[in-house]
Structure formats: C-alpha cells, structure tokens
Design a binder for these strands. Structure first.
Lengths: 223, 223
DNA sequence: GCAAATATAATAGTATTACTATCAATATTG
DNA sequence: CAATATTGATAGTAATACTATTATATTTGC
C-alpha cells in the first residue's frame, strides 16, 4: 500500500473550510498540531487561541482557514474517512470471494490504526484516537440536517455504503445491510472507547480485538 | 406497569448534583424544563442563563442544584437509565424462557419511548430524544475516567450488565456478551439518530423498526 | 529585481459563556 | 415567631468565540 498512496491527496468538501489548509505551510501546521492538541486536552477544551499559542501563530490566522472548531473537527473527520476509504478500496480490489472481501473491509474499519508514513503532517494513529473519542460530536449538533445537505458527511456515508455493497454480495437476502454496516463502523469506535475507559461493559481488550467481535458477529448474522 | 411504578423515585448518584432536585419545586422545575429546553435548542446551545429565563428563576439558583450543564446532562442520563432499568426488571420478571426474556429486554431498550404518565415532571418521550441526540457526550469527555471512578455511569453499566446476564442465559458459550449488549444499547440510540437525520445509512424507518434489526441480529448471533 | 498581490501577525474590541460572591427578600420549620 | 434555609437580584471576573483593522512579511508575476 505504501507506494500506491505516496502521493495521496485527500479531498474534502470545500464548504468545510474557508481556505484549504493543504495549500500552505500554516494550513498544514494547523492540521498537524490540532490533531495533537485535541488528543492532548480533548475537543471540549480545545480553542483556536490555544492552538495559536502551540503553533506560534495568531488566533486570527487560524480563523482564515476554519470558521470555528466544529468545522475543523468535521474536516479532520472527513480526512480520516477519506483515508479509510482509500485503505478499504486498496485492500479489497482484486479479491473475488465476497466473504473474504467483507472480512478484509471489516478488519480495515475496526482495527486500531497505526501511523501511515505517507502523509507527512498527519499522524493517523492519533487521528484515530480523536475519531474514537470525538467523531459522534460532528454529527450530534442541531445543525446536522443543514450540514448533511451541504455534503459534510458524504465521505463517511460513502465508507458505510461500500461496506453495504460487500454485505449485499455475501448475502443479498439480508434485509439490514445498511444498519449492519453503520453498526459495525460506529460501533467499533465505541468498543474501542469502552476498552479504554469502561472496560466492564466490553469483551474487547488487548487479547480479544474489536475486529474479532465484529468478524464473528457479521459471519453469524449473514450465514 | 402503571400501578407498580406509581411511586417511582429514581435514585441517582449523589455526587452528580449539589442539591437533590427531587427535594424542591424549583429542583423539579429545573429537571422538567431543562429536558424541554435541551430538546429545543440542543445541549451545545443550552445554558443555565437561558434555562433561568425559561423557568423565571435566577441563573445562580440553578447553580445551587448543579455545578454545570455537563453534570445536569449526566443527571438526566442517570435518571433515564434508572427508569429503563425499572422497565427492564418489570418486563422480564417471571418470564422463565431465556430467549423470550432476552427478546423482551432488547425490545425495551431499543424501542422508541412514549411518555410514562407516572412521573409528573418528566416527559420520558422527550428525554429519550435527548438521550438519542446527546448521551455519548456524557461519556466522551477528558474527565470520563475520574467520573467513572466516582460512579457517574453505574446505572448505565448496570443496564448493560442485566442484558449481559440474559444473553449468557440464552447462550453461555457466546464469548462477546458484554460487547453485544453494549452494541445493542448504544447502537440502537445511533440507529434512531440515523433514522432521523442520515436516512441513507440505516434500514430502520417507520415501517422497519430498530427493535426488529436488533432482535434479528441477536437471534442470529446467539443461535 | 521590483511592484503588486497575498498571507500572516498584532492589536483591539464585542457579546456571550461560565461561573463566584454578596446580600436582600421570601419561605419553611421547629 | 424566631431561626434556618432557600431563592432572587446584582455585580463582577476570566475565558470563549469571534470580527475588524492595520501593519508587516512573503510570494508571484512580469
């Protein structure tokens, strides 16, 4: 996968940002350091002022890239799901057996992420931690319908729908492929969260992975 | 169920509030109206000042009941899960067949809620909407480990563990009962959210219920 | 290599949020 | 009816979430 993705330029919806952060060194620094800072202090405590201090830039400069911190989180999420889509596509291309393809896909989306060295300014492993801890906050706002209309969540929905396609190939009769796919994707984030913080209500841990749980579940449901 | 619960006094962890809102008319008004206001404007836009205006009380009076709005949301969630636990217990008591008991339990926790007339100041149907839209925010903070230690999420975990018990009765060999139970409970909230806001990635709608999806899934997984 | 255009930094300012403190007024209770 | 507790009103602080303006760099196009 390394060489294939070495020129990876992830596209996110233009409406999410004021100015594309990929087009300047400051923009890239904003992305890189916001990931580290959100991981460090949490999204609720994160402010553009603190980010400005961290990167030695002025608050007002950050506002020229993102309207507010919510949009920045939507950007990071879109980037993450876009990157995940690449991984999904490359891992499943040329695999003919539907079950094997679905298993690969489930493994990709439920696995704990390690850093992808091909993107210099983004640490995917830490971004994955942010997605686990904060992703639902991008959806759970009063503006969700408006933002959905504007296409803020298109990439995320595309990831789900790719998995829906794989599920349908394995079992075209199964009537809940969309709900199963969304359950796997968002549910695995939650299981990772529980493994980290509420260990008593999950079976997933360092020995039994979230991936094993969802592979087993899916196999049984589609059989 | 009506008569059994008519004197229902839900207990929540004392550390969640400064002063028990159940002990005064103002406290009850805070609970009642905060549910309506959070539903109306969303938790992110909700402030004690706005709540004060709504109930004709001073902001500072509300602070005598809750330290901040996060704790109020934790209180509302605890109340909800405690009420849910009552419903679970009464719906499953005296049912001997493990599968039937599990089905009842899944139905209770995944169903859309209608108002319970036995609690005068709380509209459970609207509270359910808040839980669907905001529950994960009670967990997804930097303070989750500390608050978990203080027992803020005990009732929620108890609900999950009751379902774990039912799952184990149906199939003692199944190795992921905790993950399955937490997936059902938090996943069904998410499916309700998708039905409302991102319809293209769920199969649940007015004709096919979230409950049907989880009953089918559980049956297949434990068979 | 320089002028024009663009990006960034610095500063200031506003409205709102998230509280805390104090004291007066009102209700409750023993 | 006095003591106690509760609520309301007011004021105040620090932080947040921005917007606007102007100065200073940096980039680019010729």
């Amino acid at each position: 996968m390394n060489s294939i993705l070495s020129n990876l330029k992830i596209q996110v919806n233009e409406k999410i940002y004021v100015k594309d952060p990929e087009t300047s060194p400051l923009g890239k620094k904003i992305i890189q350091q916001s990931i580290l800072l959100i991981d460090e202090i949490g999204f609720d405590n994160f402010t553009f002022k603190k980010l400005g201090e961290k990167i030695g830039s002025n608050e007002s400069s950050i506002y020229r890239y993102f309207e507010n911190k919510h949009k920045l989180l939507v950007y990071l999420s879109s980037w993450y799901w876009s990157w995940m889509e690449y991984k999904l596509v490359f891992a499943t291309t040329n695999i003919l057996d539907p079950s094997e393809k679905l298993d690969k896909a489930i493994t990709i989306v439920t696995e704990k992420v390690t850093d992808d060295v091909n993107t210099e300014h983004i640490n995917e492993s830490i971004l994955n931690k942010i997605i686990i801890a904060e992703f639902t906050k991008t959806l759970q706002t009063k503006e969700v319908d408006q933002e959905n209309k504007e296409g803020f969540f298109l990439i995320y929905k595309r990831v789900i729908n790719r998995i829906v396609g794989f599920i349908n190939e394995v079992n075209p009769e199964y009537p809940f492929s969309k709900s199963l796919a969304s359950t796997i994707v968002v549910g695995s984030l939650h299981q990772h969260f529980l493994t980290e913080h509420l260990k008593t209500i999950t079976d997933c841990n360092e020995y039994v992975s979230t991936t094993q749980f969802y592979l087993n579940l899916t196999k049984n449901v589609l059989r």
